[in-house]
Design a binder for these strands. Structure first.
Length: 557
RNA sequence: GCGCCUGUAGCUCAGUUGGACAGAGCAACGGACUUCUAAUCCGUAGGUCGCAGGUUCGAAUCCUGCCAGGCGUACCA
């Protein structure tokens, strides 16, 4: 509809140019927005004002000329007007809105989807929590945002691949192994203590106990190095399995799990370093091997191989991102916690150093979650073992509420997550407000079915029946949904979905509530059919939107 | 010090790429259940959009400088 209107305006400009009523210029970009005030029409454009300078004429004059040149063979518009300093307001003909209502149940689960992604392949890597401890609340936000963004991108026609990068190599894994080995020895009566750098959480003890059951005292007879390696591998595998279970409970699935260790085992990291050497992108200094990231936009050069011969985390990340590009994605999106933001320039630099198009790579930085309990901050640290797990949150608050709450904020804003509040609020939580719409409509449809109304097909009479301002308002809101999804995808802002859902829900609840004025199922069969069609369409959008968020749509509550 | 993010109603937050008188939920106050489910609805009240300049027809939005908070600034991951 917006596109149709933009097309009409473009044609009007063209014909004004040809008629000489406006000076021939390039046709500018046409911005159409939905005015806040109903009296300002369904769409509004500031085109006349932006053209005022180049045309050297008053905006209102230009607006008038454009309107005079608009040809509208399909009768899309019912009214146009020049307003304020030079806005052109457009009023869409009523039956055009009804045409959109008609399409909602026809398109059903596809309503809201589009093809703007053109089938391009996008890879989205998110969460990627180290397998050194269970997922905690902060991870929940990344998981919810990443998963919903994936769904949104898929809805607008991208081919989306979700990936989890498993940091199963390096020092933190070794530390994990050491921690477990200490606990294991303690269980066997040895007097060894955890060092400050070790993982303190009680889950380490649990892992040691399971290990003891499996291996008995076998590890004591091994060289320590070997025992720690065994502990590390055992623990990481076990923890990763737990993470997968938590993600199942949270409703998040990944198409690919990419192991950091595999980059070493296949020799990829070493090959990449050789490659860098031959291209003179790295140099030696103080015994270490440095990447010339500064030449590619980073503030300074970065170490790839330390003086002690060990590679840095950056080394495998270079190899990893090179691998991503070699997998020929059109777009590569990384979602990281904001505490990693200093890392962005060096990864981007490494990508450009290989000659890849840096614009195809984007990083979304999710601001951190501040966990509160009764308004007081709870400090979280995986290492110190002080954290609230995602699993606990799912169990206490529920998956639907948790996902909704995580999405209800722009990802660039820090999020205060108060556990007690989340539980207390569970009754006036926005997620129930939206789900309640689905339940209410489901109930109406059930009742209607008892009275003989089955699947209702569109009838052209409906556009003459559904004419109450509230009904038109609802239809206009429904018509906006595909735009909301497209916009959410383009800006990579999943929070737009729940905000829209709340708005649509509010409009429905208000409509539903005034049952004296417009009860859906009444004695008037035609009217009932039309309104049943309307509410069915609303239910479809609620269901589709909740699906994008990974939130269930209950039949009853 | 430098870099990234944030600052909008008492609280939690939106704000359609610079538009018309700044919006919602919660909290406060006053109302609505003989129902297609009140997990709902209607109304009242509440703002110097952190501060100060600048850009222009027009700024919460863009630029500059301050102020405040968070995060980062390793041959850690």
């Amino acid at each position: 509809m917006k596109q149709e209107l933009a097309f009409l305006i473009r044609q009007a400009l063209q014909s004004a140019f040809e008629a000489g009523t406006l000076q021939q210029k390039d046709i500018p970009r046409i911005d159409l927005e939905i005015p806040k005030i109903v009296a300002h029409g369904d769409f509004s454009t500031n085109i006349a004002m932006t053209m005022a300078v180049s045309q050297k004429r008053a905006p209102r004059e230009i607006a008038k000329i454009i309107i005079d040149h608009i040809e509208d063979p399909d009768h899309l518009l019912s009214k146009t007007q020049v307003a304020g300093p030079g806005f052109i307001n457009f009023f869409i003909a009523l039956d055009k809105w009804h045409e959109i209502l008609k399409t909602v149940p026809e398109e059903d689960t596809a309503y809201g989807t589009s093809q703007v992604g053109l089938g391009k392949r996008v890879q989205i890597e998110f969460l990627s929590a180290n397998p050194t401890g269970p997922l905690h609340v902060g991870h929940g936000r990344c998981a919810a945002v990443g998963d919903t963004l994936s769904a949104v991108l898929k809805a607008v026609g991208y081919e989306v691949e979700k990936e989890y990068y498993v940091n199963d190599s390096g020092r933190q894994i070794r530390t994990l192994g050491e921690s477990v080995f200490v606990r294991y020895q303690q269980l066997l009566g040895k007097t060894v203590d955890l060092s400050a750098g070790n993982y303190q959480g009680s889950y380490i003890k649990d892992l040691a106990r399971i290990l003891l059951d499996q291996e008995r005292e076998r590890l004591l007879g091994m060289p320590e190095e070997e025992a720690v390696t065994l502990c590390a591998r055992f623990a990481a595998t076990r923890i990763l399995a737990g993470i997968r279970e938590d993600l199942v409970a949270f409703g998040v699935s990944f198409g690919h799990w990419f192991s950091e260790q595999s980059l070493y085992e296949s020799g990829t990291v070493q090959a990449v370093i050789q490659d860098l050497k031959s291209q003179d992108i790295v140099y030696e200094h103080d015994g270490a091997l440095w990447f010339r990231t500064k030449d590619f936009g980073d503030e300074k050069d970065r170490v790839v191989v330390r003086a002690n011969g060990l590679t840095t985390y950056f080394a495998s990340d270079i190899a990893y991102h090179k691998d991503k590009f070699e997998r020929k994605f059109d777009r590569i999106i990384d979602i990281w916690g904001a505490d990693h933001h200093g890392y962005v320039p060096r990864v981007s630099a490494s990508i450009r150093a290989f000659g890849y198009d840096g614009d195809r790579f984007q990083v979304l930085l999710i601001q951190l979650v501040n966990l509160l309990r009764d308004g007081k901050p709870v400090t979280m640290s995986t290492r110190a073992g002080e954290f609230v797990t995602l699993r606990e949150v799912i169990d206490e608050v529920g998956r639907d509420a948790a996902r909704f709450l995580f999405l209800l904020r722009h990802y660039e804003s820090p999020l205060d997550f108060d556990l007690e509040l989340a539980k207390k609020q569970s009754n006036d939580n926005p997620v129930y407000y939206v789900q309640y719409v689905h339940a209410r409509i489901s109930n109406i449809l059930k009742k209607a079915e008892e009275r003989g109304y089955r699947e209702i097909d569109w009838h052209d009479d409906f556009s003459r029946i559904l004419t109450l301002p509230e009904e038109i308002q609802l239809i206009k809101l429904m018509a906006r949904y595909p735009d909301v999804v497209a916009r959410s995808a383009r800006l990579m802002e999943p929070h737009r979905i729940p905000f829209y859902m709340k708005e649509l829900s509010a409009a429905f609840h208000a409509y539903y509530h005034d049952r004296n004025k417009h009860k859906v199922v009444s004695d008037d069969a035609k009217l009932s059919a039309a309104r049943l069609y309307l509410v069915s369409a609303i239910r479809i959008i609620i269901r589709n939107g909740l699906a994008l968020m990974g939130v269930s749509a209950p039949e009853s509550m």
